[in-house]
Design a protein around this nucleic acid. Structure first.
Length: 160
DNA sequence: ATACCGGCTAGCC
DNA sequence: GGGCTAGCCGGTA
């Protein structure tokens, strides 16, 4: 799959690894990943033809090629519409995505989000306000990211 | 089919 | 508030 570029690019949460095609951003990985790890991860999913690009060339659009249509795409697309500085519970996101009652499965979909932090799965928290888990760096990073965009986080929970 | 498993939840102490 | 539980849904082996 030629035409895939990647770079360590600035985000509101620091420099993250991002990958893109002419169609849009298709993958992301947290700052803790080494370049080798991200590259290997990209090649396994997109094939060869992945090359380093310029951080300034990252498109704004999202390229959903790594998210198969269906439940996961529905949920991640709905997640992408959560405004910065706000949060939604797993149950609310399930309903917003057209799958009421699937809160538990939404957690699993977030856990396999291939494009953090572009698809802001860090804005999805538990119904009781507790921060919940975060695959791309753990709950502490999730809390820091929320704080960075103005969400009040106290004792591992957000205001509800 | 069938049996787990996991970024959850509501209900009940 | 805390802790525990059965129930929940979609993914994967």
């Amino acid at each position: 799959m030629p035409g895939v570029r990647y770079a360590r690019a600035p985000t509101p949460y620091g420099d993250w690894w991002l990958a893109w095609t002419p169609a849009g951003v298709c993958a992301g990985a947290d700052p803790g990943w080494t370049e080798e790890r991200f590259l290997a991860w990209l090649r396994r999913r997109l094939g060869g033809g992945v090359e380093r690009g310029a951080a300034g060339d990252v498109p704004r659009q999202i390229d959903w090629r790594l998210v198969p249509p269906g439940f996961r795409r529905d949920v991640l697309a709905a997640c992408a519409r959560i405004p910065a500085g706000t949060t939604m519970s797993y149950a609310e996101l399930a309903a917003a995505a057209g799958h009421p009652g699937a809160a538990r499965a939404v957690g699993s979909a977030m856990a396999t989000n291939p494009l953090p932090p572009v698809v802001p799965c860090h804005r999805v928290v538990r119904s009781d306000g507790r921060i919940g888990e975060y695959s791309a760096g753990g709950p502490a990073r999730k809390a820091a990211m929320l704080l960075a965009e103005g969400v009040e986080v106290r004792d591992g929970a957000v205001r509800r």
